[in-house]
Design a protein around this nucleic acid. Structure first.
Lengths: 322, 322
DNA sequence: TTGTACGCGTTATCAG
DNA sequence: CTGATAACGCGTACAA
């Protein structure tokens, strides 16, 4: 494979000139530029990327680290990739399946200068381990963390959940059942707090509904519907853990002849494709903007600029289910 | 950041010795080895990956190129990544959304030696364009291609489809309806050919069923069920395009009081999670082994070895739906 | 067992 | 407008 020296030799000029031509630098006579370009095309020459990386100390490669695939994560990845691509960065992927060592592979590559930055979407190691690598390059995360100086694009769900509850209240619903995502998860805690504050605020009498947790699938929503139908004292509104659960719920409820929002109001979370499809009221979750911000943060750290971040806001998307 | 020369200077030895210690080469006295290792840890030194890549002419990075995400592709990716990891390779991802230029980014990185190989799962450029890059490194694909010397782990579906049809026949089904995936797709063509050969072979009288194509979603299966119920002359078995369609079909059919496999036999394709869940007869599709083979092919090309490939076979997975 | 010195392929500074 | 040459950081013949 031809290298820059061979081109230089054949063109009868120095490597410096070749470099100038390749990188579009000024101060090259039109005639030599022509000749060089011709030669480059003839020999099918391209610069060696590793040599450039070595010289520049950067690879234009960003690592994305995550535990596993899921629809929200894929959305994040795609949005991040899109931002990164615009600025010439490519993505290398590390799916850890919860194995800390795989995450360390990525962190080590950062240290060895094979990665310019890392987005640790869902971590596997302890934060202090990850933090010890921040000196080798930008590391950004999607999760919340305390007592750490790793930038994060995490969003607290308390306010958003309140907004959803207030919406239901304003629509006249009083017997509201909340379905929570993963138990022990931070999001579940925040939503529970929002719900109990809400109950307190309006002095809503306590209902004897069971606590539903760890419900995140369409299937869970379907089961929930069967539970709802079997009850004598039914909730008049259900705030689902996400749009999938809401989708399962509304589908079964309607199929069996009940009316939404008449017999029961339903609200989802995330504003995914299915919420649009089934006309579900939901909370819009700006994953794409979070991803964009994640890239902007990295960019700011690399170029020491201070490009503004997009303000992140949940918004209520009101549709026919409430 | 410390480099090898600094370690050498501080240890009072040459860089060659440091290199030997790092790479576990013999012929280093125990005492100097100890001293060097200590110094390396003290200074938190790691070799610069780009320098090594430049020197070795390899990055241990393999690109995966695909049009978009889908469950089968994710399975392929995960299996491939697992094989690659065992041999110290990492994956960088290129999702093209059908844009040929994005695929070219990957191909150019191969040319520039930033990628050691490429798995072109679902291509965006014409084959001859991709083929022109094979001289820069191994390129393997998941798709079928003609008149080309790009290795492929594609599997023809004709035999597999025949097996499924024979199975239905042996179970006594005679009015079999086939639901096909994407129109114009090679797989659809092969399955159609298998079906018409099957009809001919057993002299099955022609039925006036419509041709269903482009059905690949749960939703499609649900619609199909409503169509089936509305018919007077119903198929007694349905060979679905994939497990998702079969899942939608069987769920609705059963919910509305029909019996499977009594009223209708159902068979899916791919043997995904949902087929197991709903106890669907299906055709097992060895994606994981295809991915392993893809890596083995690459490995063989890089190391000029001739490691054996895993034989790829579809198998009928008989369950309760037939 | 250890060291010297060159090559990997570029970029960039500085002199001309 | 152009060229020599010093980095960038490492691996490895070859010599000692």
């Amino acid at each position: 494979m031809a290298n820059i020296q061979e081109i230089a030799r054949l063109a009868g000029v120095s490597t410096a000139t070749i470099s100038r031509v390749i990188n579009g630098h000024p101060h090259v006579s039109e005639s030599t530029r022509k000749k060089v370009i011709e030669l480059i095309e003839q020999l099918d020459y391209v610069p060696n990327g590793n040599a450039i990386s070595l010289k520049k100390g950067a690879t234009c490669l960003i690592g994305i680290v995550a535990v596993a695939f899921n629809p929200l994560l894929i959305r994040f990845m795609q949005a991040f990739t899109q931002s990164a691509e615009k600025h010439g960065f490519n993505i290398t992927l590390f799916i850890t399946n919860g194995q800390a060592e795989k995450e360390l592979v990525a962190l080590e590559m950062l240290k060895r200068k094979q990665l310019d930055a890392i987005v640790c979407v869902l971590r596997s190691n302890e934060w202090n381990v990850i933090e010890s690598y921040t000196k080798y390059g930008p590391i950004v995360t999607w999760q919340r963390l305390e007592n750490s100086n790793i930038p994060s694009v995490f969003m607290d769900q308390y306010e958003a959940y309140c907004t959803g509850l207030e919406h239901l209240y304003s629509k006249g619903y009083r017997k509201i059942l909340s379905i929570y995502p993963m138990p022990n998860g931070l999001n579940t805690k925040e939503r529970m707090r929002a719900h109990s504050d809400f109950v307190l605020k309006y002095g809503i009498p306590a209902e004897k509904f069971p606590v539903f947790q760890g419900k995140t699938l369409v299937r869970d929503g379907e089961e929930l519907a069967r539970w709802w139908i079997s009850q004598i004292n039914r909730p008049d509104a259900v705030f689902c853990a996400n749009d999938e659960v809401a989708a399962g719920f509304i589908t079964v409820i309607r199929r069996l002849g009940f009316s939404v929002p008449g017999d029961v109001g339903i609200i989802g979370f995330d504003n995914t494709e299915v919420a649009h499809l089934l006309d579900l009221t939901t909370i819009h979750y700006p994953v794409d903007q979070q991803a964009e911000n994640a890239f902007t943060i990295i960019q700011n750290m690399i170029d020491t600029t201070t490009k503004e971040l997009i303000p992140l806001n949940y918004t209520l998307v009101e549709r026919q289910s409430t």
